[in-house]
Amino acid sequence: MSQAVKTELEENYQQLIEIIDKHKGERGALIPVLHEAQELFGYLPLEVQEVISDGLGVPLTEVYGVVTFYSQFSLTKKGEYKIDVCLGTACYVRGSQAILDRILKELDIGIGDTTEDGIFTVNATRCIGACGLAPVLMINGEAYGRLVEDDIPGIIEKYKS
C-alpha cells in the first residue's frame, strides 16, 4: 500500500465505516456504498474496496467486478477539475468532437488522462441532457453551452489560477 493511500484511508476510515454501517443489511447495498465512498475519497483504490468487502461481507472479487463495470467508478485519482465534454448525439452533430480535440490539444493530454499538475481530468461523456445548448461541456458540474472552439482557452484559463 502506498503511503499516500494509507494516509488517506486512515484519515477517512471512521467515515467509511459509518457509510458501510448505514447501508449494511439493505438489499443491494454495494452500489450505494461505492457511490458514497467515491464521494469521500474521490476514487476507489483497492484498499478502500477491501474495507467495503469486509464490511458488507461481499467477496472482493465481486466488489472489484462492480467497480470496473460501471464507468462512474474510478480506480485512479482524478484531477481537481473534471472537464466532461458531452459527446451525446445532439452535441456531436453540432460539433462537440472539435471542442474535445481542442481541449486535449490545449492541455496536451489524452481522453481520461489527468494533467501532470493534477488540475484537470478530461473525459468524453454521454449525454448530460443540456441538448438545447449543444455543444456543451461541464467542469465540476458547471455547464458551458453554445460553445465554439475559440472559447476553450479562456475557459481553461479561468480554472488555472
Partner: peptide, 8 residues
C-alpha cells in the same frame, strides 16, 4: 431511490 453508475 437507487442511483445508476454510468452503464447504458
Amino acid at each position: 431511490i437507487r442511483l445508476g453508475a454510468g452503464a447504458f
